[in-house]
Design a protein around this nucleic acid. Structure first.
Lengths: 116, 116
DNA sequence: CACCAATATCGTTATTCGACGATTAACGAA
DNA sequence: TTCGTTAATCGTCGAATAACGATATTGGTG
């Protein structure tokens, strides 16, 4: 038993929800490519209003996917990689799972699936 | 360059959004544990109204994360593992990324982050 | 054909999300 | 202390989401 089984559906859904927006994916990729914190550079990069980007950052911070450290007058954002691990675990488990015929109630016959 | 870079923010967000609900995570885990399709068994397992579960299944099918094959009078659901790979790729890239000091504008000094 | 079981769809309601502009807050610098 | 810069918060609006019960659909069975 790995740690995945102790993670609730709610926790996994919350992680997914926090990243379930194009702007937030963009921010995450930006932080990934820069390897670290960027200030209001994020706003100009994302191309939405400052208040909107701030709201997306608030959501990511609330989910603890990014952290913000105050410089002045800027804020320094970083990815919190550990927070994403439970979702990564689930997806890895899905990707690596092999379907055995015994477990399957549908077997492929030619190009269609037939249920036993 | 891996295939991740050719995936848009919108596509990644759409995958995350499709799984960003506790009931849908539960369905995915159920399909993973059974390795294959279950009919209306999903409804009783999830504990929501039949129409609600049907809607969640519709969302998962629309995102091509599950497929439904009609038996009768049941429907046979299966996970489409490939569809989740782009998000898995992103999360793996994040998890495996190492922060080098050159890329970082914030360096940790004792227990706080200081920006250069 | 009439019926039955399993799903899907529809209509409704309450809640949440996403975006924006305007305002406020924080705090270093002049 | 006043100013300027940056980020956070507020208020609002329209759109999307989630849930349910009721109804429709589908196709095999008697």
């Amino acid at each position: 038993m790995n740690n995945l089984n102790s993670v609730t559906n709610e926790q996994l859904a919350a992680i997914a929800k926090a990243i379930a927006h194009p702007a937030r994916i963009q921010i995450i990729r930006l932080l990934l490519s820069k390897s670290s914190c960027i200030g209001g550079e994020i706003t100009s990069e994302v191309g939405l209003a400052q208040s909107t980007v701030s709201e997306h950052l608030r959501i990511l911070k609330a989910a603890e996917i990014v952290t913000g450290e105050i410089e002045h007058p800027r804020v320094c954002y970083s990815l919190n990689r550990e927070k994403l691990l439970p979702l990564l675990d689930l997806l890895q488990q899905i990707a690596s799972s092999q379907v055995t015929n015994d477990d399957v109630c549908c077997v492929s016959a030619s190009d269609t699936l037939m249920c036993k």
